[in-house]
């Protein structure tokens, strides 16, 4: 491939290079391979992030050239005093609280069950994973149909067994749980696959040995499966918390943050302020605040999980 990787053996006339810890040329090759990613990272992640940080201190407007007037911490104090910011932040956290535990526990349970099925295992794997590959717009449409008041599948179905259904997406208290259910159905497959892979890593002989020692299935799950899946659970939990905090699509598509702003996530608040209201500086300040929250949540989460791992 690249010319730098030609080994001395190919050019025997050249004196051997002084021996180093690494084979010659490898450092340069590594740089070469990392460069494309590095450039993209700089251009699309680091650069915009720094620009966003700068912008958050200005009254930047989408429809005016340049950064606008210097605002100091004005945007930050406005955000911290804004009830809309705090409520959207709470909506994001509430969504994370509602989705993360089920997405971990259910994924584990279903993976366990699918792993035990002896016939048609491919079907169960596919069935649980299939929703995950759907685009958010399709998921939103399917669930909007089901949640439709008066006519939707859920309301009609519940009426048949004599239960009055709430206005799933229309009632401010029910809208978030309804979105959480949709999200669980949609994204369960990803965690499910991670757990399934984790389950297959556990050596069979552990189960056999424990069975000989008289352990029942429940004991095997508690004493072998769960501890052996510790690393998977850490991974799943961290990925899930971050994914839930980043919620935007399904909320924007299904409720546009309504009813009555009850499901407006913090990212939608940023979008609304920055792109709809043209207030880029303020939106950048909110993004920075949210970044700090995600950082803090992730840090706390990591510490908890690390400690648990050590105990295990």
């Amino acid at each position: 491939m690249s010319t730098e990787t030609v080994t001395p053996a190919a050019r025997p006339v050249q004196p051997p290079e002084p021996s180093t810890a690494r084979p010659p040329g490898q450092g340069r090759a590594a740089t070469g391979f990392l460069l494309p990613f590095g450039l993209l990272y700089l251009a699309f992640i680091l650069g915009p992030a720094v620009y966003g940080l700068i912008m958050s201190f200005f009254d930047a407007s989408l429809v005016r050239p340049g950064l606008g007037g210097f605002a100091g911490f004005g945007n930050y104090t406005e955000a911290l005093q804004s009830a809309d910011f705090w409520s959207s932040l709470w909506h994001t956290l509430w969504f994370t609280i509602l989705t993360t535990p089920p997405l971990i526990v259910l994924a584990f349970v279903f993976a366990l069950l699918a792993d035990r099925v002896s016939r048609g295992r491919w079907f169960f794997r596919l069935a649980f994973f299939a929703p995950f590959i759907l685009p958010s717009a399709v998921v939103a449409l399917i669930w909007i149909f089901m949640y439709t008041p008066e006519l939707g599948l859920l309301e009609v179905g519940l009426a048949k067994i004599g239960v009055t259904a709430p206005a799933w997406l229309g009632d401010p208290t029910w809208a978030m749980p309804s979105l959480a259910v949709t999200t669980i159905w949609w994204t369960l497959g990803f965690n499910f696959i991670l757990y399934l892979a984790g389950l297959q890593e556990i050596p069979r002989d552990l189960y056999e040995a424990s069975a000989i020692d008289g352990a029942g299935p429940w004991q095997q799950i508690r004493r072998i499966t769960i501890p052996m899946l510790g690393r998977t659970t850490t991974l799943v939990a961290v990925l899930q918390v971050i994914a839930s905090l980043k919620v935007f699509d399904q909320m924007y598509l299904m409720t546009t943050g309504g009813p009555d702003f009850a499901t407006r996530s913090v990212l939608q608040y940023v979008y609304d302020q920055g792109f709809t209201n043209f207030r880029l500086g303020y939106a950048a300040a909110v993004s920075m605040l949210f970044f700090l929250v995600v950082l803090a949540v992730s840090a706390v989460w990591f510490t908890i999980v690390r400690r648990q791992e050590k105990e295990v």
């Binding site: 229309g170 009632d171 401010p172 309504g258 009813p259 009555d260 702003f261 609304d272 709809t276 209201n277």
Partner: peptide
């Protein structure tokens, strides 16, 4: 107003408060 007009923030903040009254919430 910069926040007013059809389907704007103005209609959203007023309409959601009004809708909540009609819905008895």
């Amino acid at each position: 107003g910069w926040y007013s007009g059809s389907g704007s923030n103005f209609e959203i903040v007023t309409g959601s408060a009004i809708g909540a009254v009609i819905a008895g919430q």
